[in-house]
């Protein structure tokens, strides 16, 4: 038990440097360009990080157990489009139906992924790259050149996309709720702790009787539902969807997880960390613009910072792991 407490302290410590980095970026940029650190500036960053943040939070669950889901970009876009199309075709349909449709589509893709990965034992990278193509192809076929425009989007979603509470955009509140619930689920439920165990050492997890396949399947199904919600947020955020919606965002999602301290090697990290990673990623993008870095340099600098963040995180992780080992030795 003590060992677990120490470990969870170390987990917290992993997020600390990211928060420091985030604060540093906001303050420095804010000094140069005051609009950036104004409440509108920060609210803009939070809005832009919400969809990626929620996806990263749910992705962290998979990466922690050494899985990955690259199909989230296609699925998010598909959900956004289908919900918009469904709402437009059935004017006056209750908003809850839209929500159910969105979550059901995400769930469906999630269980297909989960089935192949958990029960057929196929590698998740391969299955989800394949699903990235399949879902995107089906989506493009359904959408064609059709666009879902603002007047077709259910009003509550539009409100969700533009409103805020105490200055915090609703969208970000959704992402935050998602990240907190995944974090708590993983830290305090038996189910969640199993995921960490699987990610740390899959063979050992199996030997101590953790039903690895079932955990994997449920994690993908759950992640599918979150992806569905992310699709709703995407539709709310842009009040628009077409065949290109969500294209290519999967790599940003993984990047957010990595920056947020969710180790690709599994077993480490939290959903909150992943969300903070998404916010940091977005903050850097905005900060570069606010600092007057040319458009053409922005991506290069962002890429360099990403590599730097991964390196830095690695150094911190190695150090905190050493500390854990030392502390465990002391306690023993």
């Amino acid at each position: 038990m003590t060992g677990r407490n120490v470990a969870s302290t170390a987990l917290k410590a992993r997020e600390f440097p990211i928060l420091v980095a985030l604060a540093a970026v906001v303050v420095t940029t804010g000094l140069v360009n005051p609009t950036f650190a104004s409440s509108e500036g920060i609210s803009a960053i939070l809005i832009e990080s919400s969809v990626i943040g929620l996806l990263a939070a749910s992705q962290s669950m998979l990466i922690i157990m050494r899985q990955i889901d690259l199909s989230v970009g296609s699925t998010t876009g598909l959900v956004a489009f289908l919900v918009g199309q469904n709402a437009a075709a059935n004017i006056g349909v209750p908003f809850t139906i839209s929500v159910v449709v969105g979550m059901a589509v995400g769930f469906a893709v999630g269980i297909v992924n989960g089935f192949f990965i958990a029960y057929l034992g196929l590698p998740s990278l391969v299955v989800t790259i394949a699903m990235l193509y399949v879902v995107r192809g089906v989506f493009s076929q359904l959408a064609g050149g059709e666009t879902i425009t603002a007047d077709q989007v259910p009003a509550p979603l539009v409100e969700l996309g533009s409103g805020s509470i105490f200055g915090v955009p609703y969208l970000f509140v959704c992402a935050l709720i998602g990240a907190i619930s995944v974090t708590l689920l993983l830290r305090y439920s038996r189910w969640g702790r199993d995921l960490y165990a699987i990610g740390s050492n899959p063979e050992a997890a199996l030997r101590v009787g953790i039903p690895v396949a079932r955990r994997t399947f449920v994690a993908f199904a759950l992640s599918g539902i979150f992806t569905g919600v992310a699709g709703l947020l995407l539709l709310g955020r842009f009040s628009f969807a077409d065949a290109t919606s969500g294209l290519g965002i999967e790599l940003y999602v993984i990047a957010a997880c990595v920056i947020g301290g969710v180790a690709i090697a599994g077993g480490v990290g939290t959903a909150m960390g992943a969300l903070i990673g998404a916010v940091l990623l977005q903050t850097i993008t905005f900060a570069l613009g606010a600092l007057g870095v040319s458009q053409f340099w922005q991506q290069a600098v962002a890429g360099a910072l990403l590599v730097l963040a991964i390196t830095f995180d690695r150094v911190v992780a190695v150090r905190s792991a050493r500390r854990v080992v030392r502390q465990v030795e002391v306690l023993a």
Partner: peptide
């Protein structure tokens, strides 16, 4: 034992 369950790499210690 890991075959046929989730296909996972044989356990490298993490961190």
């Amino acid at each position: 034992p890991t075959r046929g369950e989730a296909s996972l790499p044989s356990g490298n210690e993490v961190v």
